[in-house]
């Protein structure tokens, strides 16, 4: 049985997408992590090739909230000074949204990431699809959306460079 998405929920989900893109485009890893549910959440970034072949190997495999927080520390602390900085611009377009349970939605969006290395020209990093499980927390106009799970399936068969930031 299909259920309608309430206007408040739709608007919370749109705000979640915006917060995610804004965090990565600013290189703000803490803000990226804050878009995920604080107790139980996961982030997977996997190639379309492995996804098609039914193989589990991921580029990033953060299967619990602790590992999402650890990824923030890897990028900001352990790797600091190691990688050549690059900036990104994320663009998304929502493709589908379905009710998955009480205050929970499954959504898919197409995305494209532009990349600009320090001192370099802007190129496409990859395009792909976000497959999300989104929780709505709170009621009415005060509600807020968070990712319970974000599965990023990227199109590039060969990544154009080494990767530091999540997609």
């Amino acid at each position: 049985m299909s259920q309608a998405v309430t206007a408040a929920h739709a608007s919370a989900i749109e705000a979640l997408h915006t917060a995610y893109l804004a965090a990565l485009d600013k290189g703000d890893m803490a803000a990226w992590a804050a878009t995920f549910a604080s107790n139980e959440a996961s982030y997977f970034c996997i190639s379309a090739e492995n996804d098609r072949r039914g193989l589990p190997l991921a580029l990033m495999y953060d299967d619990c909230r602790g590992r999402i927080d650890d990824r923030v520390s890897f990028v900001t602390k352990v790797w600091a000074g190691t990688y050549q900085p690059y900036r990104t611009r994320h663009f998304i377009q929502q493709l589908s949204m379905n009710v998955a349970g009480a205050n929970q939605y499954r959504a898919t969006s197409g995305f494209m990431i532009m990349m600009t290395p320090e001192g370099g020209a802007t190129t496409i990093l990859t395009s792909g699809e976000y497959r999300d499980l989104i929780d709505i927390q709170g009621e009415g106009d005060q509600c807020r959306a968070v990712f319970r799970e974000r599965r990023t399936v990227y199109d590039a068969d060969v990544l154009p460079r080494y990767i530091v930031f999540p997609f």
């Binding site: 991921a58 990033m60 953060d62 790797w79 190691t82 080494y162």
Partner: peptide, 19 residues
């Protein structure tokens, strides 16, 4: 699967080799 985070293009101990 968890340890696969260590290697590959975004690997915690292999990203820097590309750099």
């Amino acid at each position: 699967m968890k340890q696969s985070n260590l290697i590959g293009p975004a690997g915690l101990i292999s990203m820097e080799d590309g750099e």
